[in-house]
Design a binder for these strands. Structure first.
Length: 405
DNA sequence: TCTGGGGTCCTAGGACCC
DNA sequence: TCTGGGGTCCTAGGACCC
């Protein structure tokens, strides 16, 4: 039985590289991409910036302290999304066995198509060439007999690298690697493992798999197998629709102004409604949450009739908010539609059967499409500081890859 | 020192039923 | 009122990813 072949394609400093590509004067310079012109948090940075110690999540002000000439660029989600879509299409043409892992990462299984390609190197260089010709961007590729090792491999030679981990050499790579280099091991699992004397992957041999599975269930088992180079997980096909769609906003710590809190809920509701409508989704379960000092307090609210209407959603938020004392200090809010489903019927905006607010929403949406978001908005939201630009999340899928129902 | 925003998956345990 | 046993559904919340 021949072994499987997986590759993991990872775009190098994706957003920052796109900025450097589109603005050549940024080439060779330390670039930090932030959420909008005045975003305080660094989403990602160019390799030149990383050389100074710039890291994702760092505040831009702290970044400037270690890298005075750091160039700040507002993120352009639309451009990144379009670029990603083209790249994923290229990959899909190489092999239909694809799992799009995030906006800039994908797994491909080449086991079947090796009959056509003969040499693994031919495929790898073909991918790199096609992406470079199309997008003027570079990627790193990891090749191995399992997904987790392929992902691990793609990180080893960056940028623009190729790393092949096979059955003969995987111990050399894996054994001395810190346990948290594995995808799936973060602070929680890591501290548990450290507590049991596991610091690098080879230490895992000393730990019975049952200890991990008792504590972390199936994920624990999977991590144990990964550390031993025995991960058997295949590609996970893309969903037909997302499992949730939502927005949240971090507030100034301990915000008590109910006016401000409602305003943020209104904005989140609007954003969510707009996004639902754009993809023709609606939902009848909403997760509303506020974070107080002690942590999150969330509630799932079920309504009778599924909706994508901003007023409906906002009203759900308001009734939840009413459960709290007026003076509760709030740190963060969240509005999420769970299990959104495609609307059954095409809405005719001229039909008399549609209620007014739906027609209005449709009209607003058309304006937003033409002139950009929030050309028209409720008076309460004019000139306010609660907005933040849209962000691309890992679950985001290039258009065309998420099959519509 | 948890920075911001948007997701997924999994599990323990309570509610409810016979 | 808890005695026994067994099953399902749902929820809250933890952990992780980019």
């Amino acid at each position: 039985m021949s072994e499987k072949i997986f590759i993991h394609v990872d775009m190098n400093a994706f957003f920052a590289s796109i900025e450097q590509r589109d603005y050549p004067k940024l080439l060779g310079k330390p670039v930090a991409v932030t959420n909008g012109e005045h975003g305080s948090c660094i989403i990602t940075s160019s390799y030149e910036a990383r050389a100074f110690g710039i890291k994702t999540g760092m505040r831009i002000s702290d970044g400037r302290k270690i890298c005075p000439y750091l160039v700040q660029r507002p993120s352009r989600p639309k451009v990144y999304a379009e670029t990603s879509t083209r790249i994923m299409n290229i990959l899909h043409n190489i092999s239909p066995d694809i799992q799009i892992y995030s906006v800039d990462e994908a797994f491909l299984e080449l086991t079947n198509c090796m009959k056509i390609y003969k040499e693994i190197n031919h495929v790898i260089y073909k991918i790199k060439d096609l992406i470079y010709e199309s997008e003027n961007l570079k990627c790193s590729i990891g090749i191995s007999f399992s997904k987790s090792l392929a992902k691990y491999a793609s990180k080893i030679n960056k940028p623009d690298g190729i790393t092949y981990i096979n059955k003969n050499n995987y111990h050399e790579y894996l054994d001395n690697s810190p346990i948290d280099t594995l995808c799936g091991v973060s602070t929680g699992v890591k501290s548990f493992l450290n507590h049991h004397g596991v610091y690098k992957c080879s230490d895992m041999k000393k730990l019975p798999i049952s200890i991990l599975s008792n504590r972390f269930g199936n994920i624990g088992k999977k991590i144990w197998l990964m550390a031993n180079g025995n991960d058997f997980e295949g590609l996970i096909p893309d969903l037909n629709h997302p499992k949730s769609l939502g927005h949240g906003k971090v507030l100034k710590p301990n915000t008590k102004s109910s006016y401000l809190i409602k305003k943020v809920f209104l904005r989140m509701s609007n954003k969510l409604a707009l996004r639902l409508r754009k993809s023709n989704y609606e939902s009848n379960i909403f997760l509303i949450g506020i974070k107080i000092k002690a942590g999150w307090i969330q509630k799932k609210v079920k309504i009778e009739k599924a909706t994508c209407n901003r007023n409906d959603i906002f009203n759900i938020c308001l009734s939840y908010l009413n459960l709290f004392e007026k003076n509760t200090g709030i740190y963060q809010v969240q509005v999420t539609a769970l299990n959104p489903l495609k609307k059954n019927t095409q809405m005719d905006i001229f039909s008399k059967d549609n209620d007014k607010s739906e027609v209005l929403d449709q009209a607003l949406e058309n304006i937003h499409d033409k002139f950009g978001p929030e050309t028209i908005k409720p008076a309460r939201l004019i000139s306010d500081d609660t907005d933040s630009p849209d962000v691309i999340a890992p679950a985001w899928r290039p258009s065309g890859h998420r099959k519509s129902v």
